[in-house]
Amino acid sequence: MNEQILRINDLAVHFYMDTRIVPAVDGVSFSVSRGETLGLVGESGCGKSVTALSIMRLLPSPPARIVRGEIWFKGENLLDKTNEEMRKIRGNDISMIFQEPMTSLNPVFTVGYQISEVIMQHQNVSKKEALERAIEMLRMVKIPLPEKRIKQYPHQLSGGMRQRVMIAMALACNPELLIADEPTTALDVTIEAQILELINELKERFGSSVIMITHDLGVVAEIADKVAVMYSGRILEQADVHSIFNNPKHPYTQGLLETIPDIDLPRGQRLKEIKGVVPLPDEIKVGCRFKSRCEYVRAECMVDEPPLMQVGSSLVRCWNYA
C-alpha cells in the first residue's frame, strides 16, 4: 500500500505563446501510492489537466514545454523516456479517461474495434481474442448486451455509455495508474454516481492507482483517499480526504467547501461564492497567488509567496500558518 507508484517532483510546464510565456504548472509535487486515489482539485484553468497530460507526455508541443521537474513512475523518470518507450507505457501501464465522452471516441470505428485495438497494441493476442477481451471489458463496465454493443458505433450510444466504453478501453490492459480527467463533468448526476461507483469498484478489483481530476468536491468525497488543491499552477493544500473536509486549512480550500450548496439553505439566500476569477498564471509577479481573492490576506502575502508548510497532517501554502 505504501509503495509509491508515481512521484512528481517540482514539475513546471510553460506554454510559449506568441507574445508571452504562460507557466501553466509551476513547481508541482505530489505522489500516488499503489491502490491509492488522489483527487486533484481546482477551478478551471488552474493546471490540473496540464499536469495530467504531462504525466502521459501528451501535451501539444509547441506551445507547451516541460521546463523543470521529474515524473517518477515505478522508479523511472518518464521525462527521460524516448517517444517510443513512452508510447509503450501509454494505454498499458498508465491510461487516461477524458472529460468529453461525446467526442473522445472515434466516430468511424466500432466500439469493439476501439477497445480491442489497445489490447492488440500492447499484448500479443489475436484479433479474435482481443475482441473477446473487449466483450469481457464491456461486461465489466456493466454495459448490457456487450456482444451486440461491440458492433455499434459511438453515435449509437448515450454519453454515459460512451464514458463506460472509455473506461473499458482505459482498463483493457490492466494499467497500474488510471488518470481520470473530469470523467463525469459532462454527464447527468445519476450517471455520474454510477460512473464513480464503477471506477471505485474496478480500482479495487485491478488494484490500480487513480488520479481523479475534478472541480467538484462532491466527486472527491466520493472517491479520493487524499487530495491536492491546485490554484494557478501551484498546489495550495495537500492532505488526506478527511482533513480536507473536516479541517480545511487554506482559505481557498475553505472557500471551495463553502461554495457547496446546502439543501437547508433558506429560500432566496444567495449561494456562496469565491469572489473574482482565477488569475492567469503569468499575471502574478509577486506574493501569494490567491491574495487578490483571499479574505485573510496579510501584509506578507503581497510581497512573498508562502512555501508549502507542514501543518498537522496537511501541507499548506499560506502565511496564516507560519
Binding site: R87, G91, N92, S95, T103, S104, P107, V118, Q121
Partner: peptide, 13 residues
C-alpha cells in the same frame, strides 16, 4: 479532435 488524443493515449503507433 479529442479522439486523436484518445488514440495517442492508448499508446498506438
Amino acid at each position: 479532435q479529442d479522439y486523436v488524443r484518445t488514440a495517442r493515449s492508448k499508446g498506438l503507433l
